[in-house]
């Protein structure tokens, strides 16, 4: 396996870029759906019939591992990055929905009381009180999910859902182990870089972190 094969660097970089795209677009898509849908699971806002059905649905989505979603979407839309993106999106949706409705429900009930008496529609209470109050959780979990998805989307290629995993499998099958090392090294560097980046973003967005005096 040693030394890594420098000749496949360009190839590995391209595949890795695809993996990052899959993780990024998938995370954003999942987030965009998780935010409004998780609100429907709030027991202190919506009737129990609705919240029970919504929670059961989230539970179902969450039980299925991301690799199974990838296989499902490869069958549904064919081999390639679209299948990977959809798998990541669905998995992200299931995970974030639960985290978000729990954060939303933990909103100080007195905030809700003080605004309810204005006869404000529920959606405005969500928009102006519950979401801003949960902003720290919303952002930090979104960043966490992106880091996590970078890692899991490298594996998605194993089932044909695009990205660097596909390349790794082909190196393994053709016994090109030093090329595999190159791909692994690139992946490692990317994961570390993304972790550092999200750590930095977290400090920018989330108060309560001790910041160095300027």
């Amino acid at each position: 396996m040693v030394p890594p094969n420098p000749e496949v660097a360009a190839e590995a970089a391209t595949a890795l870029a695809e993996t990052i795209q899959i993780a990024f677009v998938g995370t954003v898509l999942g987030f965009v759906f998780a935010l409004p849908f998780s609100a429907l699971a709030m027991r202190n806002i919506f009737p129990q019939i609705l919240t029970t059905v919504v929670r059961a649905f989230f539970g179902f989505v969450r039980t299925i591992p991301v690799l199974f979603w990838a296989v499902f979407f490869v069958i549904a839309v064919g081999l390639g990055p679209l299948a990977g993106t959809l798998a990541i999106a669905v998995y992200t949706f299931g995970y974030l929905s639960k985290i978000y409705y729990e954060a939303f429900e933990a909103t100080d009930p007195e905030i809700l009381d003080a605004i309810r008496v204005t006869k404000a529609p529920r959606i405005l209470i969500l928009r102006h009180a519950i979401i801003p109050e949960s902003m720290n959780t919303i952002i930090s979990q979104l960043l966490f999910m992106f880091e996590y998805n970078i890692r899991s989307s490298t594996v998605l290629g194993f089932v044909g859902a695009g990205g660097i995993g596909l390349l790794m499998i082909s190196y393994i099958e053709s016994l090109q182990y030093s090329s595999l090392t190159t791909a692994l090294l690139f992946t490692l560097l990317t994961v570390v870089a993304i972790d550092l980046l999200s750590g930095y973003l977290r400090k920018q967005f989330i108060p309560g972190f001790i910041q160095k005096p300027k």
């Binding site: 007195e110 905030i111 009381d113 605004i115 204005t118 006869k119 109050e133 902003m135």
Partner: peptide, 29 residues
């Protein structure tokens, strides 16, 4: 104008500014 309510533990949205919190009083109209 309805009934205004000041809860015992205040209940403000901490991430929003004072004036944004005050504006919440108008959300019903």
């Amino acid at each position: 104008g309805g009934i205004g309510y000041i809860p015992q533990n205040i209940g403000l949205v901490k991430n929003l500014t004072a004036v944004q919190n005050v504006a919440h009083g108008a959300l019903g109209r």
